[in-house]
Computed example of a mutant assay.
Amino acid sequence: MSLPVGTRTQLADLLHGARVLLLDFDGPVAHLFARHPAPEVAAAVRQFATVHSIGLDDVRTEDPLVLLRAAYRHSPRFGRDVEAHVIEHETRAAAVAEPTPGAHELIRVASTIGRRVVVVSNNSERAIRTYLARHDLTEHVEHIIGRPFGHPEQMKPHPHLLNAALDITRAAPADAVFVGDSITDALAGTGAGVPCIGYAKRPERAEGLADADALVVVEDMHTLAAALRP
């Protein structure tokens, strides 16, 4: 997607005006379930739940995190059991996940020019650390704010994770910019008062991100890396 001149200027202003770069993980950084597909993980979670007499059969989804929320609604104890199982699968997926083109370049450019890079994700911290270590990105990412174990209610679209990122970096919302690929990301950004850049990994997602108040929507992470270069 070629951005209009005015949009390119807005994007550059957003990136250069922020001292903290907040990145969602699955989408903007990596395709987490590219080689360990989410539907297979969801099926494994259902099987685990069935063996442990946790009723998830009525939850129609192939999203493991939707199943995770449902397990916690069943009971906190079952939720924790399911979450531990989900973390195992997320970590396996992270070990073979495919990079989002342009994402590693963005992280390295941001780190090199002194931006504080923080990954803010509904995925587990363990999985994210596995991925970053595998790709020699650990030193370029200052903090990881992953899903708080046992507290699915704090996942995005709730602004808790973004607020935690602001707290740990001692940054005001206006000092940060958040790159996310989903409507829940954009809503979390709005809730925390952080400007949001939408990454539409498929063109049809662009309109939804814009409607959810993403200030700029891009279809290529290379666009962000190029805009951030001095």
Rank of each mutant, 00 (worst) to 15 (best):
G114D: 06
E83T: 10
A70L: 10
P203C: 00
Y131V: 07
P173G: 05
P39F: 13
I87H: 11
G55E: 14
R129Q: 14
R108T: 14
M221W: 01
K201C: 11
A172Y: 06
R108Q: 12
A84H: 08
R19L: 05
L106G: 02
M221L: 13
R60V: 15
A110F: 07
A192F: 01
E139W: 11
Y72P: 03
H143C: 00
G198S: 11
G17W: 01
V109D: 03
A110P: 09
R126F: 05
H16M: 01
P28C: 12
T9R: 14
A226F: 06
D220P: 03
P39Q: 13
A227I: 11
V96R: 11
R147D: 07
P152H: 07
V118Y: 00
T190M: 11
L137T: 03
Q47I: 03
I128N: 00
S2R: 14
R116C: 12
E204D: 15
E125T: 15
V86D: 00
D13F: 01
H85G: 00
L15V: 08
R46F: 07
E62K: 13
G17F: 01
A97N: 09
C196D: 00
A212K: 07
A186T: 10
A34T: 13
A44G: 00
A176Y: 01
G17N: 08
V96D: 10
P159Y: 06
K156N: 08
L56F: 02
R80C: 11
V29K: 11
G208R: 05
H160D: 04
E204N: 13
A42G: 02
G27D: 05
T223F: 00
H151G: 06
P101A: 05
E153V: 06
T112V: 10
F33P: 04
V45T: 07
V141Y: 02
A103C: 05
S111Q: 02
A44R: 13
H135V: 10
G17H: 01
H89L: 07
I87V: 15
P203N: 01
T100M: 00
H31L: 13
D211F: 03
P230L: 08
A94E: 11
I183Y: 00
V120F: 07
V45I: 15
G102P: 01
R73Q: 15
A34M: 04
I145M: 09
L137D: 09
G193R: 09
G6W: 04
A206I: 02
G189N: 12
A176P: 03
E207M: 09
P159A: 12
T61K: 05
R229C: 03
E207G: 05
